[in-house]
């Protein structure tokens, strides 16, 4: 799936995820959480397709169920008692709270699955390259080494088989032992060959003063616009919460803010914040369709 938002500057991506995650994690308001959950769900399916649906059913749903059960089971606050289990009161409030916690954890995980699809490692390195240049280089190097080491582990395994050391056979201890010997060969290989890598770095001047950090990313007008829109929406929601336009109390009794025009606009603002990437994609679709029509 081609996603417009992921082609934006990583700073915009990062601001977006920070905003939605902070609000999702801090505000246990049912409507806000509902908006979060629905948007995150749609966006993750948009980004990851069938994989996301499978993940949601087999991993997310059970997790949310657990969260929904744990809360009323351990938390006996609240005044509207539903029933007693082993002398412990089960309250409506804690059930509501449990559902809210479940939706929250679900949304957070869904947001992260979108984050993982969009915030690739090079974007992370771009974001932090100036702040932690050495460590972001270490990350880049490690990302280079990991796939290489996995291939090497396979090669070593095959080479060991080639001299009669079959590692897939045998009992648990035997398997662990042969795994360790493969790992041991790999470690020596990795450490010894790393000397060359260090040489190659020195040969290209690593260690000189004033190293810069190059990136292919540009911060263009669209990125500015998006940043401004994101910040405005975010501040609106924050003010709404601080000023108690949007408020929620679970214990001792469930009390939510009233619903009126202003509140509706604030909900809409949050929904717009959450759905911003999808809105971008829809806009892109429309533009393309009209372009094609003009031809």
């Amino acid at each position: 799936m081609r996603d417009t938002f992921s082609s934006c500057n990583p700073i915009v991506n990062f601001i977006y995820f920070t905003c939605v995650l902070v609000i999702t994690m801090c505000v246990k308001h049912p409507v806000i959480l509902g908006i979060s959950f629905a948007s995150a769900m749609i966006y993750s399916i948009y980004l990851n397709g069938m994989k996301a649906i499978k993940f949601n059913i087999f991993f997310l749903l059970p997790l949310m169920l657990i969260a929904a059960i744990i809360n009323p089971a351990f938390n006996h606050e609240g005044m509207t008692i539903l029933t007693y289990i082993r002398d412990n009161p089960i309250t409506y409030e804690s059930i509501y709270y449990g559902i809210a916690a479940a939706v929250m954890i679900g949304s957070v995980i869904l947001w992260f699955s979108c984050y993982n699809a969009i915030m690739t490692s090079d974007k992370f390195i771009y974001l932090f390259g100036k702040m932690i240049p050495a460590l972001s280089l270490v990350i880049s190097m490690a990302l280079r080494f990991i796939p290489r080491y996995k291939i090497q582990i396979k090669r070593i395994t095959n080479a060991q088989r080639g001299i009669g050391r079959d590692i897939s056979a045998g009992n648990l201890i035997g398997r662990i032992k042969s795994g360790v010997s493969i790992l041991s060969i790999m470690i020596t290989w990795a450490l010894e060959n790393g000397v060359d890598t260090a040489d190659a770095m020195r040969a290209r001047g690593y260690g000189l003063k004033g190293r810069t950090s190059y990136s292919n990313f540009r911060f263009d007008v669209r990125d500015w616009t998006l940043t401004v829109v994101l910040m405005v929406l975010f501040i609106m929601v924050v003010i709404a919460i601080r000023a108690h336009f949007i408020s929620i109390v679970y214990f001792p009794a469930f009390v939510m803010n009233d619903f009126d025009g202003i509140v509706f606009i604030l909900y809409a603002a949050y929904a717009a914040l959450c759905l911003l990437p999808l809105l971008l994609d829809i806009r892109e679709d429309i533009v393309w369709r009209s372009l094609r029509l003009k031809i």
């Binding site: 490692s121 880049s140 190097m141 990302l143 040489d199 190659a200 000189l208 190293r211 950090s213 190059y214």
Partner: peptide, 17 residues
Amino acid sequence: QIVTDKVWHELAFGLES
């Protein structure tokens, strides 16, 4: 001798230094 994980970054490495 390849230090980083991306082709573009590798090309830029020396110039960054």
